[in-house]
Write a protein that binds this DNA or RNA. Structure first.
Lengths: 241, 241
DNA sequence: AATCGACAAACTGCATGCAGGAAAATTCGC
DNA sequence: GCGAATTTTCCTGCATGCAGTTTGTCGATT
């Protein structure tokens, strides 16, 4: 996901954007979804910011229709919130919401990693090991964003391995979790440096090895850790508001 | 959900349909979603049937845009499947898919009922008890469809009570489960008459009473039952194909 | 008569225009 | 000069038109 063009490709001219889409075989709506998701997670679109179809459409250089579809999906995923007639906004960051996200993740994540461990193909196992290795390399990198993007691919890989498309609703939960983590990155470093990445590495390896029970235990422990972190930073989140 | 008009309201004329929408305060896309979901669950749209934007738009008397949005949501939910460039079809019914659906339900459902039991308001408790009573009344009714529609409201109520919108991805799983059940209704009667309804009643009452652990146990037992049923009818599902 | 190729119908993806309604800016009254 | 009403602007929801592609059909050729 090379994120298209950081500069403003304002041209809705078909010539200008067709070179991007046919090769990928991806619809403009899918592109818009991933693009806006990324903007939200990286907080280029700040929490609470207004999001309009027209604005996004101009920003990424496509028409309103695919943008509209992407925005509605994002709203359905809870990444954007839509007040009845007042347009859409980026979901605010707060502890209560994050705890709900983690509650839903806890419901899904154990099943996800267990089934992935059970059903992954040899090729998927290899890619999981690669992913774990990549995490290891990023473990102490200064910029967190590459690890974030890598994390997204990790989840996609787990979903492929689990061979159950009905678990895919966990994807937006990860997006919200990544944003929460990024928003408190400075604190995170002091809270427990590298712990999250370590969990990713160990889960990836356990799944690759087919260790179902171990992967499940790790996922549980991971969520315990993430929840503790949320409560930790959430305290002065509430205090500062 | 009075399902609008069973006859064909072919008129895209605003006058003809505005009486339906403004009172509900619901968008045409939402209406189309529920309408098509119902068509699929009741198998008025048969498994494997082709679904086109234009066809549905004519059928329910709105333009293509809201229909398109609804169809894309339904595809995202796995109720419709979209072959790359060949349009959308209603998902086929098969045992393997149903087991995946139940796997995902198992992940979510325990959390759903436990949290609903924990967080339901007194008003929600009252409505849950009403729902259970209604199920009791329908227990031995000949026509299964009313119970099916009631079931949908039951889930909505559980979701409200659980106070966690991120668990809402269970809704389409129920839709697929209801269709599976309906498709095998004749066999169901012999398999274990009324058992499903009994579970609904008991779960509703446990949640209303705030019995978190009991509700969770019931949900687990319910899924065991439903899965056994799926495997039972799935055997000759495979044999007949 | 069967197969292959060309034509035609249909459908999706996308852009755009229009109407209704809310929010914001401006102007008018005090 | 400040508050309130009005106008302006923006935004969403929906319909519709257009282009590219695919599917199904009919006719021509072997």
């Amino acid at each position: 996901m090379p994120l298209a063009d950081p500069a403003a490709p304002e041209t809705p001219d078909p010539e200008a954007l067709t070179p991007g889409t046919p090769p990928t075989g991806e619809s403009l709506a899918d592109l818009a979804y991933r693009r806006v998701e990324d903007l939200v997670v990286t907080m280029e679109l700040a929490p609470g910011a207004r999001v309009s179809e027209h604005g996004i459409a101009e920003r990424i250089g496509v028409g309103r229709t695919p943008v509209r579809e992407a925005l509605q999906r994002l709203a359905g995923d809870g990444i954007l919130v839509t007040r009845p007639r007042r347009g859409m906004r980026v979901r605010e960051i707060d502890l209560a919401t994050q705890l709900r996200v983690l509650e839903a993740r806890r419901a899904l994540e154990g099943t996800l990693v267990r089934r992935a461990a059970l059903r992954r193909s040899p090729e998927q196992a290899a890619r999981l090991r690669e992913t774990a290795a990549a995490f290891r390399r990023m473990r102490d990198a200064p910029d967190p964003v590459p690890a974030l993007r890598h994390d997204r691919r990790f989840v996609d890989l787990l979903l492929d391995s689990a061979d159950n498309p009905f678990l895919a609703s966990i994807i937006p939960l990860y997006a919200l979790s990544r944003r929460f983590w990024l928003a408190h990155y400075a604190r995170q470093v002091r809270f427990e440096p590298g712990a999250i990445t370590d969990f990713h590495i160990r889960i990836g390896e356990a799944v690759a090895a087919g260790e179902e029970a171990e992967a499940g235990r790790l996922a549980d422990a991971f969520l315990d850790h993430v929840e503790a972190f949320a409560r930790f930073v959430g305290l002065d989140l509430a205090a500062s508001s």
